[in-house]
């Protein structure tokens, strides 16, 4: 299912973060969203996911305006990994991941065998299979982040919007998470994620959205847009470029006031 927007205006009264934004995030595509802190990455992602109203324009999911979906119907199609989850959940890791099945739930009591199996599989995918009966509150920050990814996998939507999915993760689990997201795209899902590390974007994302925060966003194929010049303007610092193609990455030199 394709997530698309046209003429999208995103921002707050008095400050437009993205102007006239047109995107088509198709099944099988993996998008990286990059920009400095406060440039509007989260706000754009929330707008694309229907969590906030745009200042102008509209978002369509599978050709239908996103506002026209019933809440559960939307949650079955579109999953969201939020940057923060300020809730107070008292249950076990398994109970937490099972909440991803809420949009699919049809019985008042308990979960079906399919729900339990999906939750177990999701926990296994993020390397947490042995901790399913542990209280969520006792997990480390990285384990909790993987639990949140597992909840999303149990939700099993067709479109994934991920806000900083790699936060708190060590290098190995960053790699494993990116492999999971690539696997989702290969399976025909549409994936868009906010990233800070350009290496992951160049290696795993076929498209990028660059948000400089002044309203003029750039969107397109990664090889065309993920260039030293664009990134120096985006992050306002000098960069050194290493590697080629999908191995290309950029390390900062001296900060500039550009």
């Amino acid at each position: 299912m394709m997530l698309a927007c046209a003429g999208l205006e995103v921002g707050f009264p008095g400050r437009l973060l993205a102007r006239d934004l047109a995107l088509e995030i198709r099944p099988g595509e993996c998008w990286g969203i990059l920009g400095m802190n406060g440039s509007g990455k989260t706000t754009v992602l929330h707008t694309l996911g229907g969590l906030r109203a745009p200042e102008g324009g509209g978002v369509k999911l599978g050709g239908r305006p996103i506002g026209g979906f019933a809440p559960r119907e939307l949650a079955r199609e579109l999953g969201f990994l939020l940057q923060d989850e300020p809730g107070a959940f008292w249950g076990s890791l398994q109970e937490y991941v099972l909440l991803g099945r809420h949009p699919h739930a049809h019985s008042l009591f308990g979960w079906g065998a399919d729900d339990l199996e999906r939750a177990e599989r999701a926990l296994g995918a993020v390397d947490l299979a042995g901790l399913s009966q542990r209280s969520l509150g006792t997990l480390s920050g990285g384990e909790r982040q993987r639990a949140r990814i597992a909840l999303l996998l149990a939700q099993a939507p067709n479109v994934y919007l991920l806000d900083e999915p790699l936060q708190h993760l060590d290098l190995r689990h960053q790699l494993e998470a990116m492999e999971i997201f690539r696997g989702l795209a290969l399976a025909g899902c549409a994936v868009a994620m906010v990233l800070h590390d350009t290496l992951w974007a160049s290696r795993y994302c076929d498209h990028v959205l660059l948000l400089p925060g002044d309203g003029v966003a750039l969107a397109g194929p990664t090889p065309e847009l993920l260039t030293r010049g664009n990134l120096e303007r985006l992050f306002r610092c000098e960069l050194q470029e290493y590697g080629q193609g999908a191995q290309r990455h950029f390390l900062p030199g001296a900060p500039s006031r550009v």
Partner: peptide
């Protein structure tokens, strides 16, 4: 159960 995750997360899981 879902609301315990916070209102925004609950919305993403289909709760009105």
């Amino acid at each position: 159960n879902v609301l315990a995750l916070g209102p925004l997360k609950a919305r993403t899981l289909g709760v009105a």
